[in-house]
Design a protein around this nucleic acid. Structure first.
Lengths: 213, 213
DNA sequence: GGCCTTATTGTGCAAGTGTATAAATAGCTT
DNA sequence: AAGCTATTTATACACTTGCACAATAAGGCC
């Protein structure tokens, strides 16, 4: 009468990925507290015991899940900077726009980010993971800003550059949060437009004229 | 041999406040997952059973704790706006400065904010609490911005005002996060200086000259 | 000072937790 | 087709959790 459940063997990479995705899904829906091994396993279509076969403990699973989340976020964010043959200013605008639209503006991703980063104060390994991600991001910003200003024949010193990068980073982060928490309060593209304008004001760039030449 | 624990009766308001503080402390240190009724009670110097006497359930306690946190944050933030006989521009600068220094820049407060808001996506009552707090804050900003621009003889329309408020709010939020997460990366007052400058650029205000007249 | 209210403690309980480990079977190798 | 191995299931265990409730004593009231 008691039939043992049928199952399929999956490749190791695939299973690990599925478990990590299931973990992120659980955390996004019910928070860290609601993400039990059984919940996660159920979501991954697997029994709880299997998790122990791929991860030494729950802590490790959570940590890998957070790393995966950060990786995806920064990867998507930086992708917008790779445009070839575009002016620095256009690339900066594209970067900002990419960061202030889907899929980066996303309630689920924000929920995950907030949940994990709330523990950064207590968990040093999470704090370090964040610090690295943040500095990498800011350095990217600083590099583009340097190019933009150079194209305008301006020679900012290191300190000025740093302050611009901090401010621009803040603008993007702040608008990102507003967008994630209350997407329906903004019309499509509105946040990106506000962001680009604010950043150009910060850099003292003349307002864009219609395409000439 | 088994002596029952001695205790003191406290006023109702006092006990509720203590329990709420203990809750915030627990959540800040160990996250929502680590904030059990027993942990909270221990921190408040009380037995777990007592919590049920003041709060119908854990959910209610958490909700009241979040409301208390938000209340304190916005209260402190708005206090800076109450300066009498100061120019609008000075009041705006004071507001920004107040928001980008201790006690509002604080790792513990940030941890709490992030932990709770991470659940806003799943918990509608938390989401609403946030929405109200955010809109109240932004309206304050919008009001000051209107005064500042009026003092400069400028007549922005409602939409322009709204966009300025959104951008300024983002700048403050973004710098707040940076400061909370990595306070040691910034010299004292640096974030506030960056914030004031960025906001004045956003509003198109001429850089401040030394006091004349 | 004795009494009465109720704030507070202590204990119990069912459900759920992470971890450990034994038993089974899927799918490759030969 | 049989056998092996390691992926997967299933069960057990000690512990914690939120909640319920009976027992107790603190402190104001007469």
């Amino acid at each position: 009468m008691n039939e043992r459940r049928k199952f399929r063997r999956e490749g190791e990479e695939r299973r690990r990925q599925d478990l990590i995705d299931a973990t992120l899904g659980s955390v996004a829906e019910h928070g860290l507290e609601g993400a039990s091994l059984r919940t996660i396993a159920l979501r991954a279509g697997v029994t709880a015991g299997l998790i122990r076969h791929y991860f030494p403990g729950k802590e490790d699973l959570l940590q890998e899940a957070y790393a995966a989340l950060m990786g995806r976020m920064t990867e998507q964010a930086k992708a917008a900077l790779l445009m070839e043959n575009a002016s620095p200013r256009q690339r900066l605008a594209a970067f900002v726009t990419a960061n202030l639209n889907a899929p980066i503006i996303d309630a689920r991703v924000f929920s995950l980010w907030a949940t994990f980063i709330g523990r950064a104060g207590a968990d040093p390994s999470l704090a370090r993971a964040h610090r690295e991600g943040y500095l990498g991001f800011r350095n990217e910003v600083e590099a583009v800003v340097a190019e933009v200003l150079a194209a305008e024949q301006r020679r900012p010193d290191a300190n000025e550059l740093r302050r611009h990068a901090i401010a621009i980073n803040a603008i993007i982060d702040g608008l990102w949060i507003e967008g994630c928490l209350a997407a329906e309060m903004f019309s499509p593209g509105e946040l990106a437009a506000i962001g680009v304008k604010a950043i150009e004001a910060e850099l003292g760039l003349a307002p864009e004229r219609g395409k000439d030449k």
